[in-house]
């Protein structure tokens, strides 16, 4: 099975070395191969279940958390905000 592991790792924002990459590629391939045994379905068949309806929430505002609650787990905070590097790449 031809899986572009480098592209996949980038999409997941994870770095893996060659050894782990091979192992994961094998595991993925095995699972995907077993999918080929799954019954085929008509292209137009949909798994959308129209009966699965939910109740909607009333439009009432409630403020139960402070800035401190929200940021107390943040690794780096400045001026009341979480911060990340300016450069992207």
């Amino acid at each position: 099975m031809n899986i572009d592991m480098i592209h996949l790792a980038k999409l997941c924002k994870i770095k893996i070395d060659n050894k782990l990459s091979e192992k994961i590629k094998n595991d993925i391939s095995k699972i995907l191969k077993s999918v080929e045994d799954l019954p085929n379905f008509d292209k137009n068949e949909s798994f959308f279940d129209p009966n699965n309806i939910m109740t909607l929430r009333d439009d009432v505002a409630k403020q139960e958390f402070t800035r401190d609650d929200i940021l107390k787990n943040a690794p780096k905070v400045k001026a009341g905000c979480a911060v990340v590097p300016k450069e992207i790449d």
Binding site: K13, I14, P85
Partner: peptide, 26 residues
Amino acid sequence: YSTLTEMYENTRTEGFGNEVKARIML
């Protein structure tokens, strides 16, 4: 890290174990 991408990649690489990484990739 010095860039955002490095921060994401290194955080997730160092923070997750191999089983988790494998399932995320799958």
